[in-house]
Deep mutational scan, measured.
Amino acid sequence: TSIVNVSSSLNVRSSASTSSKVIGSLSGNTKVTIVGEEGAFYKIEYKGSHGYVAKEYI
């Protein structure tokens, strides 16, 4: 489990790309479970499925 480190919110994306669809967002200090990594993104558990967040904010 890791913590989201942002002051406002962090986009959760459908794939490991800044141009991919935003499927949701997480607020600062939210706990997330990392299940993998791809480039500059972590794959996380998100709403019963998976999403991707930028590593620099975790």
Results as ranks from 00 to 15, higher is better:
K31D: 07
V53I: 14
E56Q: 10
V22H: 04
N29A: 09
A40I: 09
K55L: 03
Y46G: 00
S20W: 03
S14V: 11
Y52R: 00
F41D: 03
E56L: 08
G28T: 11
I23K: 03
V6I: 14
H50S: 06
S2T: 14
Y57G: 12
A54H: 08
I23G: 00
K55G: 02
T33K: 12
T18W: 13
T1R: 13
E37C: 11
E56I: 11
L10D: 03
T1W: 03
S27P: 15
G39E: 06
S7K: 13
N5F: 06
S17C: 09
E56R: 11
V32Q: 01
S17Y: 06
Y57L: 11
E38G: 02
S20Q: 02
T33I: 13
E38W: 07
A54S: 10
E38D: 09
V22I: 14
S7F: 06
I58P: 03
K43V: 11
Y46M: 03
E56A: 11
S49E: 10
S25R: 15
G24K: 02
T33L: 10
G36P: 00
T33A: 07
G28N: 14
K55S: 04
T1Q: 12
I44D: 02
I23C: 05
S49K: 10
Y57Q: 12
E38R: 05
V32W: 04
S27H: 11
N5K: 12
A40L: 11
S9Y: 10
S25I: 15
G36N: 04
S14Q: 14
S15C: 11
V22P: 05
V6G: 11
S9E: 12
I23Y: 01
G39A: 05
S2V: 15
H50R: 03
A54Q: 14
I34V: 09
K47V: 06
S8G: 15
S49P: 00
G51Q: 01
S20M: 02
I58L: 11
S2L: 14
V32I: 11
S15A: 13
T18F: 15
V22L: 07
V4G: 14
S27N: 10
V4W: 03
G24S: 02
S8C: 15
S9K: 13
K47M: 14
F41W: 13
N11D: 15
V35W: 05
E38M: 07
S49V: 11
G39C: 06
E45F: 11
V53W: 01
T33Q: 08
I34D: 01
S19F: 08
G36D: 06
Y52S: 00
T18M: 15
G48P: 03
A40D: 15
Y52I: 00
S49N: 08
S2Q: 12
S25K: 13
A16Y: 03
H50I: 15
S7I: 12
A16E: 02
S9I: 13
A54F: 11
S15H: 14
V32K: 01
N11Y: 11
N5R: 13
G28M: 14
R13L: 15
K55H: 03
I23E: 01
V4D: 06
V12A: 01
G48K: 05
Y52V: 00
S2H: 15
K47H: 09
K31I: 14
L10M: 09
L26E: 01
V53T: 01
K43G: 01
S17F: 05
N11A: 15
N5S: 12
E38C: 13
E37K: 05
A16T: 05
T33E: 07
V6K: 10
Y52W: 11
H50G: 04
T33W: 09
S25Q: 15
S8N: 11
G51T: 01
S15Q: 13
A40T: 08
S25G: 06
G24E: 02
A40P: 13
S9Q: 11
G28P: 15
A40C: 14
T33H: 10
K43I: 15
S8A: 12
F41E: 01
F41M: 03
T18G: 10
S2D: 09
V22S: 06
L26W: 02
H50Q: 06
R13A: 04
S8I: 14
N11C: 15
V6H: 10
L10R: 05
Y46E: 01
S20A: 14
N5W: 06
G39L: 05
S27E: 14
T1S: 11
H50P: 05
Y42M: 04
N11G: 07
K43T: 04
G48D: 09
G28V: 13
V12W: 01
L26P: 00
G24C: 05
I44V: 06
N11E: 15
K47R: 09
I34C: 04
E37Q: 08
K55I: 06
S17A: 07
S27Q: 12
A16R: 02
G51N: 01
V53S: 00
Y52G: 00
S7G: 13
I44F: 04
K43A: 05
G24I: 04
Y57N: 10
K43E: 07
I23Q: 02
I3L: 10
Y42T: 02
G48N: 08
N29T: 08
V6D: 07
I44E: 02
V53E: 00
V12P: 01
V53K: 00
I44R: 00
I34H: 00
F41I: 01
L26A: 02
I34N: 00
S19C: 13
E56V: 10
S2M: 15
E45H: 06
H50D: 06
G36E: 05
V53R: 00
V6A: 10
S49F: 09
S8Q: 12
G36C: 07
Y42I: 06
K31G: 06
E56S: 08
V22Q: 04
G48Y: 05
G28A: 15
Y42Q: 02
E37L: 06
I23F: 02
V32E: 00
H50Y: 15
I58F: 13
N5D: 09
I23A: 01
N29P: 10
S9W: 10
V35S: 04
F41S: 02
S9C: 15
E37Y: 06
S49I: 12
T18Q: 11
Y42H: 04
A16M: 04
Y46I: 04
N5P: 09
A40V: 08
V53L: 05
T18E: 13
E38K: 07
F41H: 03
E45Q: 09
H50E: 06
V35Y: 05
A54I: 09
S7L: 12
K21N: 10
V6R: 08
S17V: 05
K31Y: 13
I23M: 07
S20N: 02
T30H: 08
S7D: 10
A54R: 12
N5L: 11
S27F: 09
V53C: 03
G28K: 14
G51H: 01
I44L: 02
N11T: 13
T1A: 13
I44C: 03
T18K: 13
G28E: 11
S15N: 09
S49T: 12
L10H: 06
I34W: 05
S15R: 11
S25H: 13
V12I: 09
K43M: 10
S14M: 14
E38Q: 08
N11M: 13
L10V: 15
T18I: 13
S2A: 15
Y57C: 15
I44A: 00
T33V: 14
K47W: 06
G48A: 06
N29F: 14
Y57R: 08
I3K: 09
Y52Q: 00
K47D: 11
Y46Q: 00
S27V: 11
L26V: 08
G28D: 08
N11Q: 15
S8L: 11
S49G: 15
T33S: 07
A54Y: 11
S25V: 15
V35C: 07
S15E: 14
I3R: 11
E56T: 07
N29R: 09
E45P: 03
G51C: 04
S49Y: 08
V12R: 00
G48W: 04
Y42K: 02
T33R: 12
G51L: 02
S49A: 12
V53Y: 01
N5E: 09
S2E: 07
I58G: 03
E45S: 06
A16L: 04
L10P: 07
E56W: 07
I44Q: 00
N5M: 12
Y46D: 00
V6S: 12
S49D: 08
V22F: 06
S20K: 01
K55Y: 02
G36W: 04
S2Y: 08
K31L: 13
K47T: 04
V53D: 00
I23W: 02
